[in-house]
Design a protein around this nucleic acid. Structure first.
Length: 223
DNA sequence: AACCAGGAGAGAG
DNA sequence: CTCTCTCATGGT
């Protein structure tokens, strides 16, 4: 994977969908909460859970850290896995409050140690850590998700990317291929998700895919 | 009405 | 270390 190709993909997507003001979130806390709640859940359901939390003024590290677990479960319920997620949310926030006092303080660390620290927290894996690092802490870390792997897998005609152990490899390849720019990273990932929602699945809708001209899978389909 | 969603961790082998 | 299972609601 080299420079022009991956950047070309971005340009194609960006000119098709336009710049996406993605994951706006009113606060860093809201982005963190969303990152945890969206684990294997649709964003629509996450929005409901976030609305519940907002209605109780609970989008706040200290309030979540001190919340009653049963109460938290009820608020978070629409996003699924609600017992797990309530625990992960509270666990994360109480770690932050005890260790750093605030998210801002935690996020003042450099990208690499911050990522490592996030990964050490229970319930925070690769993708969630990187989402938090990029969208909440605004560090230049490229987020890899299922869509990214699937789309790149189709475009380059390989199944290698779908394997979970390739996360770090793929991430480094991409980060080495494009300029380290938080705004670019944010929007690029948003573009992948936007496309991934209705393309490149088991039954691909490649006819209307903006990447069809660059997609090996689509070309093979034409034969 | 099965199937999936912007995953992660524990347990088995 | 690599598979497999579990967590669970709501949309299509």
């Amino acid at each position: 994977m080299h420079q022009p190709r991956i950047m070309q993909l971005y340009k194609t997507l960006e000119s098709h969908f336009g710049f996406l003001d993605w994951w706006p979130g009113d606060s860093k806390a809201e982005i963190v909460v969303g990152a945890i709640l969206t684990q294997s859940a649709s964003w629509k359901n996450v929005e409901k859970a976030i609305a519940n939390l907002k209605s109780k003024d609970m989008i706040d590290p200290k309030r979540i850290a001190n919340a009653d677990i049963k109460r938290l479960e009820q608020l978070v319920r629409p996003s699924g896995f609600y017992r797990q997620k309530a625990r992960r949310l509270r666990g994360f926030m109480s770690y932050v409050v005890k260790r750093h006092g605030s998210l801002e303080s935690m996020f003042s660390n450099d990208a690499s140690p911050l990522r490592a620290e996030l990964l050490s927290i229970n319930g925070i894996g690769n993708e969630t850590a990187d989402s938090i690092a990029l969208y909440a802490a605004e560090k230049p870390i490229f987020v890899i998700d299922a869509y990214t792997r699937r789309i790149l897998g189709r475009v380059y005609g390989t199944k290698r990317y779908e394997k979970s152990e390739c996360y770090d490899i793929l991430q480094k390849e991409i980060e080495a291929s494009i300029r380290k720019d938080v705004v670019l990273y944010k929007d690029f990932h948003a573009q992948f998700v936007e496309l991934g929602k209705n393309c490149c699945r088991a039954k691909p809708l490649c006819g209307s895919c903006p990447l069809k001209r660059q997609c090996k899978y689509f070309k093979d389909l034409q034969q």
